[in-house]
Design a protein around this nucleic acid. Structure first.
Lengths: 121, 121
DNA sequence: AAAGTATATAAGTATATTCTTATATACTTA
DNA sequence: TAAGTATATAAGAATATACTTATATACTTT
């Protein structure tokens, strides 16, 4: 049982490492926020480059990272490639993060309780 | 109004970048999970090094990163420094992440609705 | 088919990350 | 006080990240 949980956390840690790496860049985070605002909903490389003051290859590389991490999906239409959120995977990602923080915060609560009513010894 | 939200996201992005950087390492994530399990609740550098198969300086550096990112707090007692979760800040961190994913997922829902009932033109 | 536009990839550079080994600092105990 | 233990820091090496410029690929339009 503990073994299973331990294995699970090991896999989860590797998955979260990749997710957090993709998210740990201010340009990519700003892009995500821009994509949630009214202004844009699907974004092309050229748009992104202009919006963020990046060169076209830099923008392309950022989008590739977000796509590899399954944060965005790419859909080619004609001359353009439109990037949008990968909703299914984002829900997935969120669940993993919630699990992590759930573990941490419930542990915090347990510790707090232990302090208020310390064990006899 | 939009300007304010934009500024807010800019600050938030920088804060989240730091948080996600601290979390984007498999050893640090595994450490966090270990600290949520029954086994440990406060951890010393030496314990961590042994648990994770790291050298003492490597462990010390990881803990410093987690402390700087306000994920852990350090409490010196005698010869040891005990690291524990920084509950208040973890709640804070969680709120920021929830805001990010909240923005993304509500945008996803809006797009989905727009597709089901497309605008007349 | 040729020219133009959008995107991706390659290769190089500067910087950041993660480890290593060596050493310094702080505290405890004999 | 000296020796032992715990931790932090410094300095260096290997690798990863984020950009740059140059070029390749894919599609569209004339």
């Amino acid at each position: 049982m503990l073994r299973i949980k331990s294995d699970y956390c090991c896999d989860l840690s590797e998955e979260l490492e990749e997710l957090f790496k993709a998210l740990s860049n201010v340009n990519r985070l700003l892009l995500i926020y821009k994509m949630t605002s009214g202004e844009v909903e699907k974004v092309t490389v050229t748009q992104l480059a202009r919006m963020m003051g990046l060169t076209q290859p830099a923008a392309s590389q950022h989008l590739k990272i977000l796509k590899t991490a399954k944060i965005l999906s790419a859909e080619k239409r004609g001359n353009y490639i439109y990037y949008t959120f990968n909703k299914t995977q984002m829900i997935n990602h969120k669940e993993k993060i919630d699990f992590l923080f759930g573990c941490v915060l419930s542990k915090c609560n347990k510790i707090e309780k232990g302090k208020k009513a310390p064990k006899h010894h």
